[in-house]
Amino acid sequence: DFYKILGVPRSASIKDIKKAYRKLALQLHPDRNPDDPQAQEKFQDLGAAYEVLSDSEKRKQYD
């Protein structure tokens, strides 16, 4: 669930989604977690979630 990945409720605004994405991107970035083999995958999932939820048309289709 993309909302769960970003840690935001379904009613979150685009601004809230962007804020959550930036915070998590810093935490999950593979360069900051060189010892975590799943860091790259988590970071890619985060990017996919943000791409869908930050675009109003894609978000409507997802919901």
Rank of each mutant, 00 (worst) to 15 (best):
V8T: 03
P9A: 10
L28W: 12
G7N: 14
P34W: 08
Q38L: 13
K18T: 11
K15P: 11
E57W: 04
E51F: 09
Q44H: 15
K42Q: 10
D55G: 02
K15W: 10
L46C: 05
V8C: 07
R22H: 13
A49P: 00
Y3R: 02
N33V: 06
K23V: 13
D1K: 02
P34Q: 14
K4D: 05
E57H: 12
P9I: 05
P30R: 06
E57I: 14
Q61K: 15
L28E: 11
F43N: 03
K42S: 07
Q38K: 10
S56W: 14
P9F: 06
Y50F: 10
Q38D: 15
K23G: 10
D1Q: 04
E41A: 10
L46P: 00
V52W: 06
L26I: 12
S13P: 12
D31K: 12
K4M: 08
H29P: 01
A20C: 06
D35I: 06
S13D: 15
V8L: 08
A49W: 00
I5E: 07
K18Q: 13
A25G: 06
Q44M: 10
R32W: 04
Y62W: 01
A25P: 00
L24V: 07
Y62C: 02
F43Y: 15
K23A: 08
D55N: 11
Y3H: 05
A48T: 12
V8W: 00
Q38P: 03
P30C: 04
L26K: 15
P34S: 10
P34D: 09
K60P: 02
R10Q: 10
Q44V: 11
L46S: 01
I17S: 02
K58T: 06
P30N: 04
E51T: 10
D36V: 06
L46Y: 02
F43E: 02
R32L: 13
G7T: 03
L26R: 12
K15A: 13
I5W: 04
V8D: 02
G47T: 09
S13K: 11
Q44T: 13
Q61E: 15
F43G: 02
P30G: 01
D31H: 07
R59Q: 00
Q44F: 13
K19C: 15
E57C: 07
D45N: 15
K4G: 15
L24G: 06
L6K: 01
K15N: 14
P34L: 12
S11G: 15
K42P: 02
K18I: 10
R32N: 14
S56T: 14
D35T: 15
A25E: 14
Q44D: 10
D31F: 04
V8M: 03
L26C: 06
I5Q: 07
R10K: 14
A25V: 13
L28G: 05
D45I: 04
R10A: 15
L53A: 04
A12K: 01
E41L: 09
H29I: 06
K58G: 04
R32C: 14
D36M: 07
D31W: 05
N33L: 06
L6G: 02
D1L: 04
K58S: 07
A49Y: 02
A12T: 05
Q44P: 01
S56P: 15
L46W: 00
F2C: 06
Y62L: 02
P37K: 13
L6P: 02
D55A: 05
A25Y: 15
R22P: 03
S11Y: 09
R59K: 08
A20P: 01
D31Y: 07
I14H: 13
L28V: 10
S13L: 04
R10P: 15
A12D: 00
R10E: 14
I5T: 05
D35C: 11
V8F: 00
K18Y: 08
G47Q: 15
D31N: 09
F2Y: 15
K15S: 11
E51Q: 12
P37Y: 07
L26T: 13
Y62D: 03
E51C: 04
I5K: 08
P9V: 09
P34V: 11
D36R: 04
V52Y: 07
Q44A: 10
Y62M: 03
D45C: 09
Q61S: 07
E41K: 14
R59V: 00
L28D: 06
R10F: 07
N33P: 03
Y21H: 07
D55C: 11
K58Q: 07
K60I: 15
Q38T: 09
A48F: 08
P37L: 09
Q61C: 10
D45M: 15
A20G: 04
R10Y: 06
R10W: 04
D31M: 12
R22G: 11
F2N: 07
I5M: 15
V52S: 05
I17H: 04
D45H: 10
D45F: 07
P9M: 09
P34R: 14
R22I: 10
A39Q: 05
L53N: 00
A48W: 09
A25C: 05
Y21Q: 03
R22S: 11
G7Q: 11
D45P: 03
R32E: 07
K18V: 09
K42W: 05
K15M: 11
E57V: 13
D35R: 11
D55T: 09
Y3F: 03
Y21C: 01
S13G: 10
I14N: 15
Y50N: 04
S56Y: 09
A20R: 08
F43R: 05
R32F: 05
L53I: 03
Y21A: 03
D31Q: 08
I5G: 03
E41S: 15
K15H: 13
Y21E: 03
Q38H: 08
A49G: 01
V52N: 03
E57G: 14
K60E: 13
S56M: 15
E57T: 10
Y62E: 02
H29A: 10
G47A: 10
D35P: 06
Y3S: 03
A48K: 14
I17R: 02
K23I: 14
I17C: 04
L24P: 01
I5S: 04
Q38S: 11
K42E: 05
V8I: 08
K58C: 09
Q61I: 14
I17A: 02
I14W: 06
D55V: 07
K60V: 09
